[in-house]
Simulated scan of single mutants.
Amino acid sequence: MTDCDRFLETLASDRLDEAARDHARGCAVCGPLLPEQPPAVAGTPAPSLEAVRSRALEALRTTPLRPWTRDAARIALLQTAVALVVTVLLGTRNWSSPMAHHMALAVVGAVLLVVVILGSVVALAPGRRSPRAMLALIPVVPLLLVLSGNGVHTATTMRSALPCAVTVVLTAVLPLAVGLALLRGMALDAARTAALALSAAATGLFALHWKCPDGSASHLMAYHALPWLALALLAIPLRRALPTESHVP
């Protein structure tokens, strides 16, 4: 990655540091893009934008166009398949429990499935408003999980409760990896990354929703909702560590 590429990446992510600014001040290509660039000194010609224009045209010419809807549909299908397969493998012990609130389980299960299917589509949509709307799920999903719980605390030790958290994490590995790979084709955006991770991690929540018979609020918050949220936070530094192929917002 060249210094110009690093400058463009930090500019797109609003993380301009002093090193990037120093590079831009001495670069005829990046200089005109530097925010709050002081006016040119009298008698000194301003940097030409022709180099920037040529570079942008070359990038457009050599970069194949790929509609975002195709990627969104593929990851939505992948996440749906993962959620359903894991659900079948784990079983529906919670649904079969005599303590289960079937109507609440069905409604919340439908909401989780919508998050799994459409969450990635919203997260990959162009612009910045749609991904940020997904972040509203952060307080909503844990509340729905608690409301649909049966209130019975069966996993009385950490050893018996920990498999639920492990299930959330392991189920999200494949969808999250694919999602992060797709995000390389867009400008670095923490909100978009978190939104996509929330959707990917919802696959495990959906499977546990039908399997886990522990419906206590403490268990649902600590071993279901907390790992779901932790994956969203973890995805942000993981995305920053990956190279960006396109700075399209």
Rank of each mutant, 00 (worst) to 15 (best):
A72K: 10
A72G: 08
A73F: 04
R74N: 03
A76I: 04
A76D: 07
L77Q: 03
L78T: 09
L78R: 08
T80R: 05
T80C: 08
A83S: 12
A83F: 00
A83I: 01
L84K: 02
V86L: 13
R93I: 01
N94W: 07
S96R: 10
S96A: 15
S97C: 09
P98C: 09
M99T: 15
H101C: 02
H101A: 13
L105Y: 09
V111A: 11
L113C: 02
V114I: 14
L118D: 09
V121E: 02
V122G: 00
V122T: 13
A123H: 00
A123S: 13
A125V: 03
G127V: 06
G127P: 04
G127R: 05
R128T: 14
R132L: 12
A133E: 01
V140K: 04
L144F: 08
L147V: 14
T154M: 15
T156A: 11
M158W: 10
L162M: 12
P163S: 06
C164V: 12
T167V: 14
L176C: 07
L180V: 07
L182M: 14
R184S: 05
G185L: 03
G185S: 12
A187K: 01
A190Q: 04
A191Q: 07
A191G: 15
R192C: 00
A197E: 05
A197M: 07
L198C: 09
L198Y: 05
T203I: 05
L205Y: 13
A207D: 07
